[in-house]
Design a protein around this nucleic acid. Structure first.
Lengths: 299, 299
DNA sequence: CGCATTTATGCTCCAAGTGAGCATTGCAAT
DNA sequence: ATTGCAATGCTCACTTGGAGCATAAATGCG
């Protein structure tokens, strides 16, 4: 018999920043909404109950994310807690209660490549990786470490893969560049209580993957939106800039969106308002917004 | 405080049939290896311990699959058990102890499309779906049901998507065509204890997805293999036949495999033995064996 | 008003990837 | 020798995806 908690990683995108909802954990720290499993009929219903209670929000899209149960999750608590975490998507709303939205990339700054590859990767992470690689005694071990670092952080010409957010987090953790449940560390200005930052990394990777084969972006957007707005949301999550013309060609040639005829004034030439075309899920096997985690370049 | 168990869905492929390892659950029923969480440092280590104890097997590749925690999982047990299930891949080996391998598609016969679309889909499932659709009172509700059935089972010209194995299972369950924890039901000759057949469906979907973007097939193969062998394993998991020439072009133009120069006699012209090229993970962002869940045809 | 700025949109090119077949080559069994 | 089964090589047509050029329609400012 162990304690089981239900955790909610709720994501929204405002303008250009992806945000996630946290509550106060005491001691100036924050954590995701989280509460014990009760007599809930299903785990998901329990999680929704917890979220409603702690953030006063009801949410549409939800999927189970991962279950965290390492013994060492909390340094204070000798007792083991197994946490079943869910990923939720919502339009950003002012939360009702003590919850607040924080910028996702403040937790994981190395994940945002929209303005180019973050300097911290080549300045701090790369050297730390090299040091860690050298430190391996066995040469086979060294080769394994090198491969891992290259693949995970896109070093030495290997392409950056946005989906590997969790693998990056875990490598950084092994490198000692993160203090779990700690604050800052040079790399990031913000951490979360317990292993909740690891949850954030897990959620980011999962969401990035899902974007490419399921039309989940639309859960984050209002009913109608301009194509640029859509693109900005995808970019915010993917952490990468996209080619504008190709993006619009993609979404409409795939039938992901349809024009409404209405126009929006957006600062430049007025843009047409589009809406999601539900029918696409019947027409295409894996409808999504492919982001170019492809291309061998150093990016 | 609830009971937490660790479950293992271990998959192997012999010749052309994907298999999964089950143990005896008493009363003539079977279930996946499963045992309570103990003082294990991590959940994964605990699961390996359980597997070792119940099947006498140690395994390489493992990933967390899903956590099952519905109240109604077991009709006998009033107590709730939360099960953290893992997906494992192995070369088939005779298990050590009371465990045995069973054919995956005996659990989920509608998933095997290698010899064409299984008759049961159009004969039993399709009509049941139509009945269920008609039964919806609200027309909007009816539209939702119709879309769901079409997408999930590839009815009315919508393409079949192998990855949606879990969604299919859940729909069948709602349709009353499955008796969870039961035996047979017209649709399948075999069921498992508890909701373990749902686990099997979850694992199948996950594995089919993963095949296309990570080189996991090689976990199921010996070090060297012929390309046809590789293809057969992929087909067994994907549940679909592939075009032979294109398949070999794919795997070698992507750099997934390399020839060894050694030959194998295989009944026809001797085939070259190939091996997995690890370097591919550094070269390509998402190396895998794309299966054509594409193509709009009725397939 | 005229012009720079901003954003929207249309279109072309090209390289790589994918679905389908045709043709040929080696070995084994009859 | 003939037949059958696989393994391999290669062609063709078509789709996708990355990049960039060019133009259109608003706004803000001197």
């Amino acid at each position: 018999m162990v304690a089981v908690s239900l955790d909610a990683v709720l994501v929204a995108v405002t303008e250009e920043t992806p945000r996630t909802l946290v509550v106060d954990a005491g001691g100036g720290r924050s954590r995701f909404p989280s509460g014990p499993l009760d007599d809930d009929r299903t785990l998901e219903l329990g999680m929704r109950r917890v979220l409603r209670a702690q953030a006063g929000l009801a949410v549409g899209y939800a999927e189970q994310l991962y279950t965290f149960g390492d013994l060492a999750r909390s340094s204070d608590d000798p007792e083991r807690t197994v946490s079943v975490a869910y990923l939720l998507l919502a339009h950003e709303e002012p939360p009702d209660g003590p919850a607040r939205w924080i910028d996702w990339y403040q937790l994981l700054p190395w994940e945002d490549h929209r303005e180019g590859r973050p300097a911290v990767i080549d300045e701090a992470i790369g050297p730390a990786c090299r040091h860690w690689i050298e430190a391996a005694a066995d040469p086979a071990d060294r080769a394994r470490r090198q491969e891992r670092a290259q693949v995970v952080f896109g070093l030495d010409g290997t392409a950056w893969d946005g989906v590997r957010a969790l693998e990056r987090y875990e490598l950084l953790f092994e490198l000692g560049l993160l203090a779990e449940a700690g604050r800052g560390s040079g790399l990031a200005s913000l951490a979360l209580d317990l292993d909740h930052r690891r949850m954030a990394a897990t959620a980011l990777g999962r969401l990035r993957g899902k974007l490419t084969y399921r039309p989940v972006v639309f859960e984050l957007l209002p009913d109608t939106f301009t194509l640029l707005r859509l693109q900005r949301v995808v970019e915010a999550l993917a952490g990468v800039r996209l080619h504008k013309q190709n993006f619009r060609r993609l979404v409409d040639s795939q039938g992901l969106v349809e024009g409404t005829g209405m126009m929006a004034r957006t600062g430049g030439r007025p843009a047409e308002l589009f809406r999601f075309r539900r029918e696409v899920v019947r027409e295409r096997p894996r409808p999504g917004v492919g982001t170019p985690w492809a291309g061998a370049g150093v990016s």
